[in-house]
C-alpha cells in the first residue's frame, strides 16, 4: 500500500465502510459507524499490510483517515 487510493480501498475492503467523496479528509466523528473497534481493525490491517507497527498514541491524536494514512506511510 503506497497511494491514498490503495489506502481507501483497504478501508473499504477490510472495514466494510463505504467511503464517500470527502470522507478521507472528514473528521472521524462524522463518519457513520466509526468507533474505536473500527480503529483497531484499521490499525491491524495497516500493520499487516505495511509490516510496521503503528504508533497508537499518535494515531489517536489525528482526526481523519487521511492523517492516519500519512502516519502509516510516513512513520
Amino acid at each position: 500500500m503506497q497511494t491514498i487510493d490503495e489506502f481507501a480501498r483497504l478501508v473499504r475492503e477490510e472495514l466494510g465502510i463505504p467511503l464517500a467523496d470527502g470522507d478521507l479528509a472528514a473528521d472521524l466523528d462524522r463518519l457513520p459507524e466509526w468507533d474505536s473497534l473500527y480503529m483497531l481493525k484499521l490499525v491491524t490491517a495497516l500493520e499487516r499490510t505495511t509490516g510496521r507497527k503503528l504508533p497508537v498514541g499518535r494515531v489517536l491524536e489525528v482526526r481523519s483517515l487521511e492523517a492516519i494514512y500519512q502516519l502509516a506511510v510516513k512513520p
Binding site: 473497534l37 480503529m39 483497531l40 490499525v43 497508537v56
Partner: peptide, 11 residues
C-alpha cells in the same frame, strides 16, 4: 490475536 497491544491498553 495479531492485533495492536497499545490499543487493548487504551480502549
Amino acid at each position: 490475536l495479531k492485533v495492536n497491544e497499545e490499543w487493548i491498553d487504551h480502549f
